[in-house]
Write a protein that binds this DNA or RNA. Structure first.
Lengths: 164, 164
DNA sequence: TTAAATTAAATCGCACGCGATTAATTCACT
DNA sequence: AGTGAATTAATCGCGTGCGATTTAATTTAA
């Protein structure tokens, strides 16, 4: 049952690259696993994990334009518009076209939306308690992820065949 | 228009938990960013990032049942069945019901599917070169992610209201 | 001042993820 | 053998993500 394929420096093609290859999957898997852990805690509030992410931004900065949420969360209007419409249907936000610039849609929190912040306040703690992940490791992991994000953001988009 | 509650006062609720809250977002954002970096390199091969993940598993272990891929990638048949059908349409895999157990569908690599491994071999290197992320950091990040995964996997699914 | 470029959302299409259910097959137990 | 539990994929429904295009409003440049 236990394959030893994860670390096979013997004859593998350039061990460093293999490791880089391995980095992508834990990231993909861990992200989905975290989403799954949040889900049962968010379900009683009627929201999904991406909606929770957006609400965290709004709890800090509402009212703000859709584009601002997009910058913070790295999401486009193609994702945010339907998501925000769902939050509006839940009466957590209101979408108002800006008076000064009719192109902009400002997202406002409703009273329910603000109240939700209190209801969600216990979630991080509940998760941290359930998962036995040491706080110091969390700090390091976050620092590493921030560093990775910085590198990824400034990275030139690689092209397929032609080398520059 | 600026409420004092939005910006966190110094008496915030347990700084450690706030950090834990912060961990979820970088994970979510980094995972999507990595996917986006892979995409232009995978597009010429006609495959998506999740398809690439599945193919990496198959390059190691094909032929194997759908359920085995699901265990390795933490994906269910609801995700894998349509994904594998697309890989089959691309002539990268074949789906054959097992003779010994008719419930099982074994996934085989085609010649094209095997050839794809060579074509994709340069991708990790290309990315590693494009992103200036130090190898040593990648090692540490992977180690942290593996540790997190271990904790998440063994964690009891947290329930909303009632404890335990 | 109008035409062109720019910007912000919305829309469209497709491919995940995943909770839930269904259908078919095999296993276990009497 | 026979019935019920368990297992494996497939299916359904919904909500993202995201490349691409569209629409509307604003800025700019001519």
């Amino acid at each position: 049952m236990q394959d030893a394929m994860t670390t096979e420096p013997k004859g593998g093609p350039t061990p460093g690259l293999t490791l880089a290859e391995q980095l992508c999957f834990p990231l993909y898997a861990a992200s989905r696993l975290v989403t799954r852990l949040y889900q049962p805690l968010l379900a009683p509030l009627g929201i999904t994990y991406p909606q929770y992410i957006v609400l965290m931004i709004l709890w800090e900065e509402a009212p703000c334009p859709v584009s601002h949420i997009g910058l913070r969360a790295n999401l486009g209007s193609n994702t945010l518009t339907p998501l925000l419409k769902r939050l509006e249907q839940l009466d957590y936000v209101r979408r108002c076209r800006s008076a000064s610039d009719e192109r902009v849609v400002d997202i406002h929190l409703t009273d329910s939306g603000r109240a939700l912040q209190q209801a969600a306040a216990c979630i991080p703690q509940a998760l941290f308690d359930a998962v036995g992940y040491p706080l110091e490791d969390a700090r390091q992991l976050k620092a590493q992820l921030d560093k990775l994000m910085a590198c990824l953001s400034t990275a030139p988009l690689p092209d397929a065949g032609a080398g520059d």
